[in-house]
Simulated scan of single mutants.
Amino acid sequence: MARKGFQQQLSELREEILYMSEIVLERLRMGLDAQETKDESLAKEVIEGDHEINELYLGLEQDCIDLFALQQPVAGDLRFIAASFKIITDLERVADLATNLGEYTLQAERDLYPDVDIQGIGDAVIEMVEKAMTAYAEDDAERCFEIDDRDDDIDAMCEDASGIVVRDLIETEIDDTSSDTEIESLMSEVSRLLLTIRDLERVGDHAVNIAARTLYMIENSDELIY
């Protein structure tokens, strides 16, 4: 009976982590929508909602610690708990990056660089996290490798987007007639957009981390971790 209870606890832990991932991805979508529509109320909702994610994280962290300490798991169960512990950290950091998007929206003064497809990059990294969590839910090792391969495409998308911003900045005519306010505003928007691209690239990195820990959980393989 005790072992059956332990397996039930592991099943519940997985379900709670999947629930956390749904909330995190919802906040990430909201952050992207807030940037696209310049919706300050939506941006504030994302920022204020970070507290809920932190509470979920702390609760799940304690659950993992309790399972380590009280159940003394071995073999596959030990790997599952260890991987889950790492995965909730990646999810919490994705939520922090979503909060950043909300903050960038509040700081924005104008919309520059329509050729930069922020939404496209955002959709791609959201899909990566979704697939990583599906791999975790279904013990799907093959999907873990697919996510790792996809990261190269995300890196290329982000590099291209950053290149557009930098080239445009170089080509922008700033002369003696440009006021300090105009120059400061331009540099602020450039910085905001580059930070947005960087943060979305990091979301993709966290998806790879989740896939790597999932592969370790399933096959006791550290191939994607290093």
Score class of each variant (00 low, 15 high):
3 R>L: 15
4 K>Y: 13
4 K>M: 14
6 F>H: 13
7 Q>W: 14
11 S>F: 04
16 E>Y: 00
18 L>G: 10
18 L>R: 15
26 E>H: 08
26 E>A: 03
28 L>T: 12
29 R>Y: 01
31 G>Y: 09
36 E>N: 07
39 D>N: 15
39 D>K: 11
46 V>Q: 01
55 E>G: 02
62 Q>E: 10
67 L>A: 00
71 Q>P: 01
79 R>H: 10
80 F>T: 04
89 T>S: 15
90 D>T: 11
91 L>P: 01
93 R>Q: 13
101 L>R: 04
102 G>C: 06
103 E>Q: 08
103 E>W: 05
107 Q>S: 07
113 Y>D: 02
126 I>M: 07
127 E>H: 09
130 E>F: 04
132 A>Q: 02
134 T>N: 06
134 T>H: 07
138 E>V: 08
139 D>R: 09
144 C>G: 12
144 C>W: 13
148 D>L: 15
149 D>P: 14
159 E>R: 02
164 I>K: 08
170 I>C: 04
170 I>E: 09
174 I>G: 13
181 T>P: 02
190 V>W: 06
195 L>I: 04
202 R>A: 02
203 V>M: 05
204 G>K: 05
204 G>V: 12
206 H>G: 03
216 Y>T: 05
217 M>V: 00
217 M>Y: 11
218 I>H: 04
218 I>G: 03
221 S>H: 06
222 D>T: 08
223 E>L: 08
